[in-house]
Design a protein around this nucleic acid. Structure first.
Lengths: 156, 156
DNA sequence: GGCGTTCCGGTTACCATATAACGCCAGTGG
DNA sequence: CCACTGGCGTTATATGGTAACCGGAACGCC
């Protein structure tokens, strides 16, 4: 069908994700695509069990491992991120560079009022983190950075 | 008894914690002190249920709410922190300033090999986080920063 | 002293998050 | 054909976290 040609941004994102997976020999199966679609549709951090509930509409037999395995795959592929403070998942919105299926440096701004969560990739933050680690003789591999506060819309 | 006078660093820390609570009208009860002692003894991030198991040695009737209420109190008093990535708790080691019972800016360096977790308070990191938030019109209230990698000892 | 209020914590029940372990089946390559 | 692998269904269980209710101790006040 013409899903890609006619699709909105969601279908375009799914097609791009499938292509990105293909270039590195990974397969975005139907299940994984379904879960990714649900995460994209949410637009906000969404819990694994919330995803599971929605997934059950399409797949009656879905169980926790169903969704967690798909989430693990999407995390590995860098298509989604986990928000640790919320035990929730959100689609990666960093389209600036192809992060080759691995975690790229990023930070979250989490609004405590409306729940909106924005992903940023601030070079100064990354540099400061690397410097702080190095000062302790620590070899940093990755960093979880989640800033809580009030978003611009809610502050107004 | 002479616990404070004769005590090692652990008892000294407990006494200091009790004093800090007292100055702001909070009471470090026996239960809270027991939980704090367990967290201090661990020296590493420790899960709530691990604490619960150990707590049961002294308090047969201990249940999840027992330990979570104590942990909530200790968090409010700034005596411990939560490590979000590990769903675990660790004693605050920042003795530089009296953070008046409220959360103070801090970051964690988590060694993936040995599990050692160090607390730092890097001003440059805090400044970079504040600047990044401000650039998005976001009012930052607090930040979770957890750097994973390899500690100096394990790298050697 | 009597009384109300607040804080603390015991107790039960429950919900939420995450993983282990087993096994089937389709696809792939010898 | 056979062996192997990846993907996933299925069941059970581990781990993390709260809600709600209750009783008793401590404190302040008249």
């Amino acid at each position: 069908m013409a899903a890609v040609r006619d699709g909105g941004p969601l279908e375009l994102a799914l097609a791009a994700a499938a292509a990105a997976c293909a270039t590195r020999g990974a397969k975005l199966t139907e299940l994984r695509r379904d879960v990714l679609r649900l995460v994209l549709e949410a637009g906000q951090p969404v819990g694994a069990y919330a995803l599971l509930d929605r997934l059950k509409a399409a797949r009656a037999g879905a169980a926790p491992p169903t969704v967690y395995r798909a989430l693990d795959f999407l995390l590995e592929q860098g298509l989604i991120h986990k928000v640790e403070r919320l035990n929730a998942f959100i689609a990666c919105t960093d389209h600036a560079h192809d992060h080759a299926g691995h975690a790229h440096p990023h930070q979250f701004l989490i609004c405590g009022r409306c729940g909106a969560t924005a992903e940023i990739a601030d070079a100064a933050v990354s540099a400061a983190l690397a410097a702080a680690a190095r000062a302790q003789g620590f070899r940093a591999a990755r960093a979880t950075v989640e800033i809580e506060g009030t978003c611009a819309a809610c502050a107004a």
